[in-house]
Amino acid sequence: MSDGDLISELYAGCFRRLVVQLYAVTGDLTEAQEAVQEAFTRALMAPGRFAGLENPEAWLRRVAVNWARSRFRRRRMLDGLLRRIGPPPAVADHSPEHSPCSRRCACCRRGSVSRWPCTTSSTCRWTRSRPRWACRPGR
């Protein structure tokens, strides 16, 4: 029997059983299925080593449980970091309709940077951040 046949036979025989066992661990069916799929993927990456195991189903279960635990830890850490930093700051609307001044500078009127409104009546962010030659007509 080839290595691929062994894995195919094992997949057909124990996929559902492993998913049910992982569902008891994770509490989420999608997460359990993903963990078992990851275990089979790792078995496919090294079929020769996998074929030499005495109990391949136990190995698949252990790999799937370890993967689910690692994912849970990462998610818990990310949730803690997100709670600590709080919600993202509000982003100001930089469309021309919401410009703080009524007229736009020459750079903005030319259309080179239409997404940045003028911040004062004489200059814009584009003019302050670029060299003088970049704002000359014809550039």
Results as ranks from 00 to 15, higher is better:
Thr127Asn: 12
Thr120Tyr: 10
Val113Thr: 14
Cys108Ile: 14
Leu81Asn: 02
Pro56Arg: 05
Pro89Lys: 12
Arg132Cys: 10
Ala106Cys: 13
Ala43Met: 05
Thr30Ala: 03
Thr120Met: 12
Trp116Tyr: 14
Asp93Cys: 04
Ser70Cys: 01
Arg16Ala: 14
Thr30Ser: 06
Met45Asn: 12
Arg125Trp: 14
Arg61Gly: 05
Thr26Ala: 13
Tyr23Gln: 08
Arg69Trp: 04
Thr120Arg: 11
His98Pro: 08
Arg69Gln: 05
Ala51Tyr: 02
Pro87Trp: 00
Leu10Cys: 09
Ala46His: 13
Gln37Asp: 00
Met77Ala: 15
Arg61Asp: 01
Arg83Phe: 05
Trp116Asp: 07
Val91Glu: 06
Glu57Asp: 10
Arg69Asp: 00
Leu29Trp: 03
Cys101Ser: 07
Arg128Tyr: 07
Leu81Lys: 06
Gln37Val: 04
Arg128Glu: 15
Glu34Ala: 15
Cys101Ile: 05
Asn66Val: 08
Asn66Lys: 04
Asp93Met: 08
Ser8Gln: 13
Cys118Leu: 09
Gln37Trp: 12
Ser112Gln: 15
Cys124Gly: 13
Phe15His: 08
Gly48Phe: 12
Gly27Asn: 07
Asp93His: 06
Ala43Asn: 05
Val63Ile: 07
Phe40Lys: 04
Ala58His: 09
Gln33Glu: 15
His94Pro: 07
Ala90Phe: 11
Ala46Met: 13
Ala46Cys: 00
Val36Ser: 05
Arg103Leu: 05
Arg109Lys: 14
Ala35Pro: 04
Pro100Thr: 02
Ala43Lys: 03
Leu10Phe: 09
Gln21Asn: 03
Gly13Thr: 07
Arg74Trp: 07
Ser8Cys: 07
Asp28Cys: 09
Arg42Ser: 11
Leu10Tyr: 04
Val63Gln: 04
Phe72Cys: 01
Ala51Phe: 01
Arg84Gln: 07
Ala90Pro: 01
Arg71Asp: 01
Ala39His: 00
Phe40Arg: 03
Arg132Gln: 15
Arg71Lys: 05
Arg17Ala: 03
Arg84Phe: 08
Arg49Lys: 15
